[in-house]
Amino acid sequence: MSAPTLVDRLSHLSTELTAAERENLKFLLSMAAGGLLSGHARAVPEELRAVALATAQRSLPRLHGGVRPAFETGVVFLGRGPFFSEEDIAALDAESRRYRERAERFHDHYVASGAPLARELALSTKVHDFLVSQVGPVLPTHKANYLYYDEPGLGIDPHVDKDEFSLNVLTMLQHSPEDRHSELILHPPEQDALRVHLAPGESLVFFADSVTHQRTRTVAGETVRLVSFGYRTIGSV
Rank of each mutant, 00 (worst) to 15 (best):
2 S>W: 06
7 V>K: 11
7 V>E: 10
8 D>P: 00
14 S>N: 14
16 E>T: 03
18 T>Y: 03
24 N>R: 14
25 L>Q: 00
26 K>L: 09
26 K>F: 03
27 F>K: 13
29 L>F: 05
29 L>T: 08
31 M>Y: 13
31 M>Q: 15
32 A>F: 04
34 G>D: 03
35 G>A: 11
36 L>A: 06
37 L>D: 05
38 S>Q: 11
38 S>N: 09
46 E>F: 03
47 E>D: 12
47 E>G: 04
48 L>W: 14
56 A>S: 09
58 R>T: 04
62 R>G: 04
63 L>Y: 06
64 H>I: 03
65 G>A: 08
76 V>T: 05
82 P>Q: 02
82 P>R: 05
85 S>H: 06
89 I>N: 03
90 A>I: 10
96 S>P: 01
100 R>D: 14
111 V>H: 02
111 V>Q: 05
112 A>E: 02
114 G>M: 14
118 A>K: 03
119 R>A: 10
122 A>E: 10
127 V>P: 00
128 H>M: 06
130 F>C: 02
130 F>A: 01
134 Q>D: 00
137 P>K: 12
139 L>H: 14
143 K>F: 01
143 K>N: 07
143 K>M: 02
145 N>Q: 09
145 N>D: 15
146 Y>N: 05
146 Y>K: 09
147 L>S: 08
150 D>K: 07
154 L>A: 13
156 I>Y: 09
160 V>D: 00
161 D>E: 06
163 D>H: 11
168 N>F: 01
168 N>R: 07
173 L>D: 14
174 Q>C: 08
178 E>T: 10
184 L>F: 10
187 H>V: 01
190 E>I: 04
191 Q>K: 07
193 A>V: 12
203 S>V: 01
203 S>P: 13
207 F>W: 13
210 S>G: 09
210 S>N: 07
212 T>N: 08
212 T>L: 12
213 H>K: 06
216 T>H: 13
222 E>Q: 08
222 E>D: 08
224 V>K: 14
224 V>N: 04
228 S>I: 04
229 F>L: 15
230 G>I: 07
231 Y>Q: 10
234 I>V: 15
234 I>L: 15
236 S>L: 15
